[in-house]
Design a protein around this nucleic acid. Structure first.
Length: 104
DNA sequence: AGGGTGACCCGCT
DNA sequence: CAGCGGGCCACCC
């Protein structure tokens, strides 16, 4: 496993329950603001249950992808108390994970 | 070594 | 507001 992917997983693990982070946030957090696509690739490759990749969504508020299907992803988010409508988050800012120093 | 791919994002039409 | 295209980075053939 590459160091990059490792950083991605570490960051995702830090997302508390009931909160979400955008792919961009993760990229920034690990120190590679422009490696957004790479982040997606790392998560795509990942299948570990230890990593709450369902809490990572698009900046646009759309669910994004998921190994078990976007459908399941939305379901889990809703079960964690996150407001989701029509497969997307109406107001991303409410549940957005905010690691202050690293947030724009 | 070179080129293609993807769980993305931004800007322009 | 919706659609299209280009850019971006790490990874696999």
């Amino acid at each position: 496993m590459s160091g990059f992917a490792k950083k991605v997983y570490e960051a995702v693990k830090k997302i508390p329950r009931g909160r979400v982070a955008t792919y961009k946030d993760i990229a920034k957090f690990i120190g590679s603001p422009g490696a957004i696509r790479a982040v997606g690739g790392a998560l795509h490759k990942n299948h570990s249950p230890e990593i709450p990749c369902h809490r990572v969504v698009c900046s646009s508020g759309e669910a994004g992808g998921y190994n078990k299907g976007r459908r399941a992803k939305v379901k889990i988010l809703a079960s964690e108390g996150i407001k989701v409508q029509n497969g997307r988050l109406p107001d991303l800012t409410i549940f957005r994970w905010n690691p202050k120093k690293f947030l724009r």
